[in-house]
Design a protein around this nucleic acid. Sequence first.
DNA 1: TTCAAACGTGAGAGCGCTCTCATCAATCAC
DNA 2: GTGATTGATGAGAGCGCTCTCACGTTTGAA
Lengths: 342, 342
Amino acid sequence: MTMGIRSARPPQPTLEMVAAAAGVSRATVSRVVNGSPKVRQEVVDSVNAAIEQLNYVPNRAARSLASHHTQSVALVVPEDMTKFFGDPYFAAVVQGITQRLDESDYTLNLLVASSDPRHKTMRYLRSGNVDGAIVISHHTGDDFVANLETTMPVVFGGRPTNHSGPDNYFVDVDNVAGAISGVQHLINLGRHRIGTITGPVDMPAGIDRLNGFRHALAAAGLESDAVEHADFTAAGAAAATRRLLEHSPHVDALFVASDLMAVGTMGVLAEQGRSVPGDIAVVSFDDSPAATSGPISLTTVSQPSKEMGFAMADLLLRLLAGDETVPHHNFMPTRLVFRDSA
Amino acid sequence: MTMGIRSARPPQPTLEMVAAAAGVSRATVSRVVNGSPKVRQEVVDSVNAAIEQLNYVPNRAARSLASHHTQSVALVVPEDMTKFFGDPYFAAVVQGITQRLDESDYTLNLLVASSDPRHKTMRYLRSGNVDGAIVISHHTGDDFVANLETTMPVVFGGRPTNHSGPDNYFVDVDNVAGAISGVQHLINLGRHRIGTITGPVDMPAGIDRLNGFRHALAAAGLESDAVEHADFTAAGAAAATRRLLEHSPHVDALFVASDLMAVGTMGVLAEQGRSVPGDIAVVSFDDSPAATSGPISLTTVSQPSKEMGFAMADLLLRLLAGDETVPHHNFMPTRLVFRDSA
DNA sequence: TTCAAACGTGAGAGCGCTCTCATCAATCAC
DNA sequence: GTGATTGATGAGAGCGCTCTCACGTTTGAA
């Protein structure tokens, strides 16, 4: 590794230099920096003055090496970049997480682990870069995170798939119940030929919402084979909707497993001249900004995405603080929001 | 800090342990791990076997403390979360950056530095967490990154604002020329009452595109006071469009400074019963997925966002490698893409 | 007044790695 | 065969911090 640019930079001041400037020992400066109460105010002040004057910032690597923690946590998203950026659900969750973290002195490391270098992600995680991790958008088969839990505290956003024991920590909503409430509303509206565009069936959220759909129909003595799978993207849902309409042209209502997907669905419906909610009533899931972005606002099962992010971070922070009393599961409420599409 | 959970975790194996297991010295293991050519193949193999067996992963903090580099770079976005996630432009840039980084052994740290804890972001950067930084979506007044350049190599996505010297590194497109080509197209179409929805005027991209608009008009002997400022969001653009239509109801064309904003504009136009491109022709900027997401596809000034991200990362990596010969500026080409809106 | 407790501070040993040297063996030219 | 060169390895000194102790000083109770 050539030096070039790098060595031209002025060296950062060290604890040692601050100590010398303030006329105290390293240990004392360390105490001041870490807010230890057992330093005389007078000394605290002079040390702070020295810190200020030298523009000192503690070196993370050294601190972390000595103390065995890093004051940062990872957000692992086993999803590709486009999907991650495309869905406002993630934006809300990340927002909630950072909001909680901003109150602490932890920082966030976002790892969007698209297919290729998962290996690299694991290395990163395991080489002591973070004290804990939050994993969201977790698919079956993403067991690459499984052994992560043996290394550090992990909180899942959404119930993790089977591979993990019952002692996992996670924040979720009751997707089954949420879906039931949405489909029930469709039924109450007098619709009886109800179809659904599902999420990926390798994700608990996808499976559970589909199960909720089936439960609600069964409870009403209805059934449906108008079921098409998609991938939580608008484009995927659009394609699925086309397939569904092809095979089941007579549906009068659609339960779509996410707002973003519903946007794709609405596009296809408009394109085919089906009016919403006239011809086809639509209920979706999330209540993200996508629900109100289109010409027809979506009736949707609202989940508190931002609060969920906040709760995930909060849970992790408490785990990190050694709090043994935290409950493993945190189910947050869903609520049906009535708008124009159904 | 209580121990609780943390101390329950099994300790990670160290270099020392690998050395012992392989019957060599620490130095030799270090050489193997870092791919030094001067170790006998036989020894390399036995060390690798030991690494494998112990499931060893080098400790980043220790490595970074000893070597003075971290093998990671930061992406700093002085923007709020919602804006960042909402704009597909960022998604493309980030994608390009990670693509380049995946080829290297650097990792990315995403810092979305919304208003509040900029201070925290600076601390993070300055405490030696990263070897270099990429700064995008840079506003005037974001001089909080200014002194960052004295600490580490920095590459800007988009020409930085004045505060920084001419020796900054950046990747950009010629926004003025791009805007001119777009507006010129509108003029060629025979439109003469052309308005514009601008980006933020505290951002070079906002200013330059507005300047391009003015230049193109002036060159054609036209002028316009139908200029409304927005903030690179769909909602902001929608509001701006309403204001514009109010004051200048007779415009027959609109140059909108980003695709995402054009989505907002198109919504308002549809709502007010103005046909596109019939009543009003629209040209926007970016050529992001947003350009083709609506019912009417957008004619837009295409900029190679993903490639730009790639170029930013590439530039930074070369700087980090001590390459003194890299050019400071990398202007990438724009190109007008013809679709339905104009 | 005397001794113990409490308090504030410093000395120094590590944390897990990198990297410069020194060392020793094998190779080479003459 | 001799001295010089090359090559592979190990020893050991840090990197900048934290944290345990030990130490000296102040305080308070008896």
